[in-house]
């Protein structure tokens, strides 16, 4: 069962199908969401755009859950997917490696792996369950739904923060993220596919 879902693009934010009012665009939109909805995690400003996007997506769906947060738990996994990997951070890092201006940035290098997002979400929320990040050729809702549904077979995982988090650059990105629970009626697969198509 999908408990809540969010869609963040460089132009708009939708939570459970309701448009949220943020007038900014692109990278400024991410900062505006943070200042409006999070506020207490200054590490946000050190993240690359991909990580900011995934972090904010997770914050919106977790806040919507409205339960006790920051209590260590093993029954929640974080499973994300995208197409562009960490390309945006890679390009920015490469720009610091020019032969005549060779000052590689350690802070940028930290984000040259997409799975840093899953780690940031897990650390922030004290999730001790599975964390995975898959890079796919395209936004394949069938593969994403199958992978997330399969993650419940370990008899530990009861819920998953999952979805699509893709960032081409600071002003061109899309996240469709959701919080879902194990579903005895096998409807979850179709629900995930439906959300990802929105």
């Amino acid at each position: 069962m999908i408990k809540s879902w969010v869609k963040i693009t460089d132009k708009s934010v939708t939570l459970n199908g309701q448009m949220m009012d943020f007038p900014s665009y692109g990278n400024a939109l991410l900062t505006e969401i943070y200042r409006s909805k999070v506020k207490d995690y200054p590490k946000f400003f050190k993240m690359d755009a991909l990580c900011k996007l995934g972090f904010l997506g997770s914050e919106l769906v977790i806040q919507d859950e409205n339960t006790n947060r920051f209590v260590p738990r093993e029954d929640r996994a974080v499973i994300l997917f995208n197409r562009s990997g960490s390309l945006n951070a890679d390009v920015n890092f490469q720009a610091t490696l020019q032969p005549d201006d060779f000052f590689p940035s350690p802070a940028l290098f930290v984000y040259t792996l997409p799975n840093i997002i899953t780690g940031e979400i897990a650390i922030r929320n004290k999730y001790l369950g599975e964390t995975s990040f898959y890079v796919l050729e395209k936004k394949d809702s069938e593969t994403i739904a199958s992978q997330i549904v399969a993650s419940f077979q370990d008899n530990i995982t009861k819920s998953v923060i999952g979805g699509w988090v893709d960032c081409v650059d600071e002003n061109n990105f899309e996240a469709v993220m959701f919080l879902c629970y194990r579903d005895e009626e096998n409807k979850l697969h179709e629900e995930i596919k439906n959300i990802l198509s929105k």
Binding site: K46, F103, P104, S105, P106, A107, V110
Partner: peptide
Amino acid sequence: SIDALELIVLMEK
């Protein structure tokens, strides 16, 4: 610690 590395780069640059 990452900030420390950035400061080292800043000093050189």
